[in-house]
Structures are given as structure tokens and as C-alpha cells.
């Protein structure tokens, strides 16, 4: 397992996609109802109705990211940002084309995934860490640091269900920002905490980004993006519309000259 060596000698990390496409088949009951099948047969040339409809979420994505890249991901809702992040994480393997991912991926798309409301905060810290590819030992070494950061004190021994939303976010952020990722993929929604805590987590987030070999960050907050990234990918209709220097892409995306 390479996790032990991750902290010292960092190996090269990179992500390369070549003409990668992500097509979702929609096996909806409606699309396969008898009525439509019969009509499709009668109509003759409406071949698409007799087959499973497909949503082309990503089309011909060509991206090459190397160690040290700090990439912002912008685009409107439904442009394919999250799908692209999942492609880069290796969760979706391309239906056509190739995606090659070198390095240990820590995807942070949803702060709450893998959290169990019935177990204590401390136990959740451990589980979340294991999910993010850390070893039990590494997490044990970090528990105190995380506990300090979350400022939850004795609450950490209480089941997670007793926590307020803000407390959960603190816990999740605490764990997530304590890991040593090679490839860090962040999907918005990180900013849902109170202002004082946000300042503190920003520093931690910046440190995390510093430690990570490669960052891709999807967000609608220009402020956050400017702080963490130097280049950007602009997604539109499942295609990479522009890939370049951050300010340049942001300017084009906003459509207003800065």
C-alpha cells in the first residue's frame, strides 16, 4: 500500500483523458412501456424510442493535468461539473475514450457521505478517514488535531444525530482537511458554515490544497476560486468550452470584461 510513503517522497500524479465520454442510459419504466414500443414499431423510423434513451453527460473531454495543477471548474448548473469530477475521480469510467488517473484520489463531493448518525463523532472521524483512503494508524494520529479544529469538545463522544447542521459540517471539514491527498477533488458547498469558522477553515483548506499534488475545485464562488486555483476549465453542455489561465476563463465565462 502506498499510503505510508505518501507523506514523504511524493510520486508523480497526473490525470489524462482522451476523447472521454460519459453516457448515461436511462432505464426508466416509461421509456420501455409497451405502448411506446408498439408505437415505435408502427412508426418505423423512431429507433430511439424502442431503445434505452441516453443522456450524454460528457462528450469528448480532453484534459491533461499534472502534479501541481490548481484547476477551477466553472460552468452553469447541469453543465457537467460534477460528472467531470467523477470522471476524474475514476468513479465513472468513460463509456468511450480513455481516462488515466495516476495517484490516490480524495474526492470531497458531499461532506456527509459515509457518515453514520448513530455513532459518535469520534467514530465518524475514523470511518470518514478510512473512506478517504487513510489508514487507521494515520487517523489515530490525527484525531486530536481534528478534535481541536472542530471545537466540539465532549460532544465528540455523542452520536452524530444529536449534532446541529453546523456542527456536522465542522466535523466533516475537520476530517476532510486533515488528510494527505495526492489528487484532491472538491465540489462546492464547502462554504456553509458560520463566518468565524469559515476564516479558520479557509486556512486549513488552503493548507490542504498546498499538501495535495493536484487540485480540481468546482465552485460558483469566484472569491474562493481565486484564492485556491490558478487555472480553470469551463464546462458547457458536457464539453470543455475553455481550458486556460484562471482570470481569462473567468472573464470569458462571466461574459464581462474585468
Amino acid at each position: 500500500m502506498s499510503t505510508e510513503s505518501a507523506s514523504d517522497g511524493r510520486r508523480e500524479v497526473s490525470i489524462t483523458t482522451k476523447d472521454a465520454c460519459v453516457d448515461f442510459p436511462i432505464f426508466d419504466a416509461k421509456s420501455r412501456s409497451l405502448k411506446k414500443t408498439v408505437m415505435g414499431l408502427v412508426g418505423g423510423n423512431i429507433a430511439s424510442t424502442s431503445k434505452v434513451p441516453i443522456i450524454e453527460a460528457l462528450t469528448d473531454v480532453n484534459v491533461h493535468l499534472e502534479h501541481g495543477a490548481r484547476v477551477a471548474l466553472v460552468g452553469h448548473n447541469g453543465a457537467g461539473k460534477t460528472t467531470l469530477l467523477r470522471l476524474l475521480a475514476g468513479i465513472y469510467e468513460p463509456t468511450r475514450g480513455v481516462a488515466e488517473i495516476r495517484g490516490r484520489v480524495a474526492p470531497i463531493f458531499d461532506l456527509g457521505v459515509g457518515m453514520d448518525p448513530e455513532i459518535s463523532g469520534l467514530e465518524n472521524i475514523m470511518i470518514r478517514g478510512l473512506f478517504l483512503g487513510m489508514t487507521r494508524k494515520q487517523m489515530e494520529a490525527r484525531v486530536d488535531d481534528i478534535a481541536d479544529f472542530t471545537e466540539l469538545g465532549d460532544f465528540l463522544r455523542m452520536p452524530l444525530r444529536t449534532y446541529s447542521t453546523g456542527m456536522r459540517v465542522r466535523l466533516a471539514l475537520g476530517v476532510v482537511t486533515s488528510i494527505d491527498p495526492e489528487i484532491l477533488l472538491l465540489d462546492e458547498g464547502i462554504g456553509a458554515v458560520d463566518a468565524a469558522f469559515l476564516e479558520k477553515s479557509k486556512r486549513r483548506l488552503a493548507d490542504l490544497v498546498e499538501r495535495s499534488g493536484l487540485l480540481v475545485f468546482a465552485s460558483h464562488s469566484d472569491e474562493f476560486l481565486r484564492e485556491l486555483c490558478d487555472s480553470a476549465i469551463w464546462m458547457e453542455h458536457g464539453r470543455v468550452k475553455q481550458h486556460g489561465e484562471l482570470e481569462e476563463v473567468l472573464r470569458a465565462y462571466k461574459g464581462t470584461p474585468a
Binding site: R86, A89, I91, V105, P107, D110, V113, G114, F131
Partner: peptide
């Protein structure tokens, strides 16, 4: 489903 869609395990 949640784990599969969120973590590349």
C-alpha cells in the same frame, strides 16, 4: 449507491 457515486473504491 451513495458510496459508489462519491468514492472511487
Amino acid at each position: 449507491e451513495g458510496l459508489i457515486k462519491h468514492l472511487p473504491a
